[in-house]
Amino acid sequence: MDLEAVRTFVAAADAGRFQDAAAELSVTQQAVSKRVATLEKLLGVRLFTRTPRGAKLTIDGQAFLPHARELLRAEERAVASVRPGRRALRVDVIGRRLAPATLLRDFHRAQPEIQLDVVTLFDAEAAIDAIRSGTIDAAFRAVALPGRQLPDDIEAARVHDEPIQLVTGPRHELATARTVMPAALAGHRIWMPGLVPGTEWAAYYDALAAAFALTIEVTGPDFGTEPLLDTIADSRSLATLVGEQTSFAWPAEHGLRRIAVHNPTPVYPHSLLWHRDNAHPALTALRAHLRSGRFHHSAPETWTPTWAERS
């Protein structure tokens, strides 16, 4: 249905005269008559009768008027839903317990008036496709995987370097260590069943294993964080690696240890990705927030894969 014709009908019904409706809409009286005639033809009924005093609604016109007003209100709501600054900013955080979710929560605490819609997509490829299709506004990802280039319409900025920690059970050989060097992990069994080949996080840990001669096992089904920690807690030989800001809790009787890894400190390179044509003001605010709070690790030396985004 032509909403301009509907708007003209409502203006004529309120004014009672086509001439007055034309003045309100800044069009000619002929244009008002033509729009109303087009609407009447579409509906198959007469909406007005002409009288010496102007235009009077027919019984069909009276029946249609409240629905016409609702159509115009729906139009206003539709426009408002995508007006810059009104639509919630949709951001992919890879996992709700991981560092990107913490970064986004910090942004929300700093600017609570900005509406956010948080999603978790599978990998960088899915995130990039979603950004290009317009289904999300931005994504936190480790980018620039070996042999892959970002599309020309995608921007990326390195926003957070997250140190990696070792998690062991209380009976593990390294359980009492305060820190451990990456090279010292060679020969120990590091179990990470959640690593999926081809993903950016698998590429990161593959590079880490190659750099320091580590043994990272991905055998067995991935039942999630809690079963993984249950197994680590009971094992003398298995350990796992997590990001420093990965959020999880375990029963006190597990006695799990989170041990810092230093000399060098492996850091996971989180980047923010967005479409270069995205003008959402909340995206601009998020980028400014991340630039002002960029993580600078205090360790004298850090490690990250050579392919990691350096922007």
Results as ranks from 00 to 15, higher is better:
residue 228 L to K: 06
residue 106 D to G: 15
residue 199 T to G: 05
residue 103 L to G: 05
residue 101 A to K: 09
residue 172 H to R: 13
residue 29 Q to G: 10
residue 236 R to T: 13
residue 45 V to T: 15
residue 60 D to M: 14
residue 287 R to N: 11
residue 280 H to I: 00
residue 214 L to F: 02
residue 115 Q to Y: 01
residue 236 R to I: 04
residue 252 A to L: 11
residue 151 P to T: 13
residue 85 G to H: 03
residue 305 P to C: 05
residue 146 P to V: 03
residue 160 H to Y: 11
residue 81 S to I: 06
residue 110 A to I: 02
residue 101 A to R: 09
residue 194 G to H: 14
residue 167 V to N: 11
residue 107 F to K: 03
residue 34 K to P: 04
residue 43 L to G: 01
residue 212 F to W: 06
residue 128 I to A: 03
residue 269 P to G: 07
residue 253 E to R: 15
residue 252 A to R: 11
residue 198 G to E: 05
residue 103 L to T: 07
residue 145 L to M: 13
residue 110 A to E: 08
residue 28 T to K: 07
residue 266 P to C: 02
residue 223 F to Y: 13
residue 15 A to V: 01
residue 282 A to K: 04
residue 303 W to V: 01
residue 286 L to T: 04
residue 25 L to Q: 08
residue 54 G to M: 08
residue 43 L to H: 06
residue 239 A to I: 02
residue 74 A to M: 06
residue 171 R to V: 12
residue 15 A to Q: 09
residue 8 T to V: 05
residue 23 A to V: 14
residue 241 L to Y: 01
residue 293 G to Q: 13
residue 68 A to H: 09
residue 14 D to A: 13
residue 121 L to Y: 00
residue 118 V to R: 07
residue 22 A to G: 06
residue 242 V to F: 09
residue 295 F to T: 14
residue 111 Q to R: 15
residue 180 V to K: 07
residue 199 T to A: 02
residue 22 A to V: 06
residue 59 I to D: 12
residue 262 H to V: 14
residue 247 S to Y: 09
residue 171 R to M: 11
residue 69 R to P: 00
residue 90 R to F: 00
residue 181 M to A: 15
residue 307 W to I: 10
residue 125 E to K: 14
residue 271 S to G: 14
residue 112 P to T: 13
residue 183 A to K: 12
residue 213 A to N: 15
residue 175 A to M: 08
residue 246 T to M: 07
residue 287 R to K: 13
residue 112 P to C: 04
residue 124 A to F: 04
residue 220 G to W: 00
residue 256 L to T: 08
residue 300 P to F: 00
residue 105 R to E: 12
residue 159 V to M: 02
residue 139 A to S: 15
residue 90 R to G: 01
residue 123 D to P: 10
residue 212 F to A: 06
residue 88 A to N: 07
residue 152 D to Q: 12
residue 29 Q to L: 00
residue 290 L to P: 03
residue 230 D to V: 10
residue 303 W to K: 09
residue 26 S to D: 14
